[in-house]
């Protein structure tokens, strides 16, 4: 389990640089990110080293921001490993809302951030299928 910071951004130049600068000035380190966008707006999703602080700072600066529960799944950094994880999740009927990859880690495994429909069900299924995931504290320390 981990906390993701989600931020609403209009599709206008300078918005992304603004939000990243705000976080940089607050000494918040971005560890993973993805952007989902439409023609009008985008949603920036971030895993940072200090989600509470990031949330507070962004709110102060007037952004629309929320915290979302996600899971950081460890996937062996070898061909076919992600496919295997996804196949097992499908077997367990886990609905994935979206996923994105973590930036570089010191571990041997790759890290994939999953947003699933039902996080408790996912955790049980992961245990059953032997899918490993990182706990919150470890993730922020990476």
């Amino acid at each position: 389990m981990a906390k993701q910071i989600s931020i609403f951004l209009e599709n206008k130049s300078g918005r992304l640089s603004h939000v990243t600068r705000v976080l940089g000035d607050a000494e918040v380190n971005i560890r993973a990110l993805s952007i989902a966008d439409t023609s009008d707006f985008g949603i920036l999703r971030l895993i940072v080293n200090d989600p509470e602080k990031a949330y507070r700072i962004l709110k102060e600066k007037g952004f629309t921001v929320s915290q979302t529960e996600v899971i950081a799944v460890l996937v062996p950094d070898t061909p076919g490993s992600l496919a295997t994880v996804l196949e097992r999740m499908a077997e367990e009927n886990l609905n994935i809302e979206y996923l994105y990859a973590f930036l570089g880690t010191k571990e041997d495994d790759a890290l994939i951030i999953f947003k699933v429909e039902d996080i408790e069900k996912a955790k049980k299924a992961f245990d059953k299928q032997g899918i490993r995931f990182l706990d919150e504290k470890k993730l922020y320390e990476l």
């Binding site: 966008d37 439409t38 707006f41 949603i43 629309t64």
Partner: peptide, 13 residues
């Protein structure tokens, strides 16, 4: 977009 209606999912917005 207020925090109340904001979602991390494009579909919801």
């Amino acid at each position: 977009v207020s925090e109340q209606v904001f979602s991390d999912e494009v579909r919801r917005l």
